Lab assay of single mutants.
Amino acid sequence: LVRYRTISKIPQITLNFVDLKGDPFLASPTSDREIIAPKIKERTHNVTEKVTQVLSLGADVLPEYKLQAPRIHRWTILHYSPFKAVWDWLILLLVIYTAVFTPYSAAFLLKETEEGPPATECGYACQPLAVVDLIVDIMFIVDILINFRTTYVNANEEVVSHPGRIAVHYFKGWFLIDMVAAIPFDLLIFGSGSEELIGLLKTARLLRLVRVARKLDRYSEYGAAVLFLLMCTFALIAHWLACIWYAIGNMEQPHMDSRIGWLHNLGDQIGKPYNSSGLGGPSIKDKYVTALYFTFSSLTSVGFGNVSPNTNSEKIFSICVMLIGSLMYASIFGNVSAIIQRLYSGTARYHTQMLRVREFIRFHQIPNPLRQRLEEYFQHAWSYTNGIDMNAVLKGFPECLQADICLHLNRSLLQHCKPFRGATKGCLRALAMKFKTTHAPPGDTLVHAGDLLTALYFISRGSIEILRGDVVVAILGKNDIFGEPLNLYARPGKSNGDVRALTYCDLHKIHR
């Protein structure tokens, strides 16, 4: 019993810090008490220290592992850092350059016999395009090294910054494609005289377009951006097909006994025919423009016929181009109408809503002055909100995010209106959640004399007048207030005048 009563005193000691020596009952000389009392004092002292730490809000209350900052290894790049964003855009520009100039170089340097010394005699450094290609190869190699040090988000939505895990993730992902696209074939085969082989191998750079397509997928929600990307894709495919079309004609031209190829026909049409040795002929500019003209006309199913396939190889390629053109029509131009419709969806919704308003007016036989006010209010409210119901949009977000959005939407009023000066951010967040926005066209009466005042109004834009009878008592403008002081009276009061809008007004109100 003594032991039980001794232990039962522990909660009292913990909360009230009572010393055991003052209790005459606990001072009985028993061996059990002498053993338990020192333990009680020690526990009391420890609990006292913990309570003191909690009340003082000291940093040592938290466990040590929670006080440590997340460790980022040296030379690790955050995937959302500004440097990584700028670097990704730079790589994107280099990939676009590669997609345009690599097929052009591979096709127009394929057994090209233009006048001038061969590239091997001039030297590697004197070729501007080769120098640019070398810079692109170096940048792609540097990009691989950067990807080995860039964080990523795993399946659990955690940012991984450990170098080993980053390397394994990159090896399992895009490393092989990036490595093949970054191989400097110019340096590996330079001086061997195989410019045709170098041009063909350099087309491996186009593998990076797969990554670019995935990154550009984030802009699919913007109709104008999608339309622009589709047109660029169409032009890029036409450019690639033009390079292939020229390569076919250029390879067949020296081996044909009869002059029936499209390059021969082009030379005869523009007065620059090929001679018996295969030299001469149109310039590279004429060849490229004509090839691009043929691919565009074939892809769009126009086909004027002034550039036509004559050999079997050219006919087979033309059939493939027609098939590609039909697929592009289905996948690209078939979506253009939907994209344009999405661009004008706001206008369509406006006309639909206006039609419903006019049908309501016609069905209920609203008189002319009231009908005009109804239409003007709808037009003004639509121009202010673009038909978007803010309350319906915010309803799907958590309250903390709703408060931040409301604070942002009402920031101008909260910053410049005098009653809100000096208020804490928590108070402003709470008030912003209570605001209701209303609009009024010129001549609209917001409050009639004798109406119950259940709200306090803040003028965000425009001006109003307060009338008693036919006498203008006051004219209020931006950041002015009218209405009933909230919670100042037990019952809502009545208006002693009319409140009429002089201009288009936007008002925020808080109800009782």
Rank of each mutant, 00 (worst) to 15 (best):
K66R: 11
Q68V: 09
A69F: 10
P70I: 05
R71S: 10
H79G: 01
Y80N: 14
P82Q: 10
P82L: 08
K84L: 03
W89V: 04
L92P: 01
T102L: 07
K111L: 04
E112M: 06
T113F: 03
A119E: 08
T120I: 04
C122T: 01
A130F: 01
V132L: 09
I135G: 03
F140A: 01
I144R: 01
L145E: 01
N156A: 13
V160T: 06
I166N: 01
A167W: 01
H169W: 04
K172C: 09
F185W: 05
D186S: 13
S192G: 10
G193L: 05
S194W: 15
I198T: 12
I198K: 06
L200E: 02
L206C: 05
L207T: 13
V210S: 08
A213T: 13
R214N: 09
D217V: 09
S220F: 14
A225C: 11
M231K: 01
L236C: 01
W240M: 03
L241D: 01
N250R: 14
M251V: 01
E252Q: 07
R259P: 15
I260K: 05
H264A: 14
L266H: 01
D268V: 14
G271E: 03
K272S: 01
N275T: 09
G278R: 03
G280N: 01
V289N: 01
Y293L: 05
F294Y: 03
S297I: 01
S298G: 14
L299V: 01
V302K: 01
V321R: 01
M322L: 03
I324T: 03
I324E: 01
L327H: 01
A330C: 03
A330F: 09
F333A: 03
F333Y: 03
V336D: 01
A338E: 03
I339A: 03
I339S: 04
S345L: 08
R349P: 04
R356I: 03
V357M: 09
R358V: 01
I366G: 02
N368P: 11
P369G: 08
Q372P: 01
E375D: 04
Y377A: 10
Q379M: 04
S383P: 08
N386T: 05
N386L: 07
K395G: 11
G396A: 13
C400D: 04
L401Y: 08
L401C: 03
A403S: 06
D404S: 03
N410A: 05
N410D: 01
L413D: 01
A423I: 10
G426H: 02
C427P: 05
L428Q: 13
A430I: 07
A430Q: 11
K436H: 07
K436P: 02
H439K: 01
P441H: 09
D444F: 07
T445Y: 12
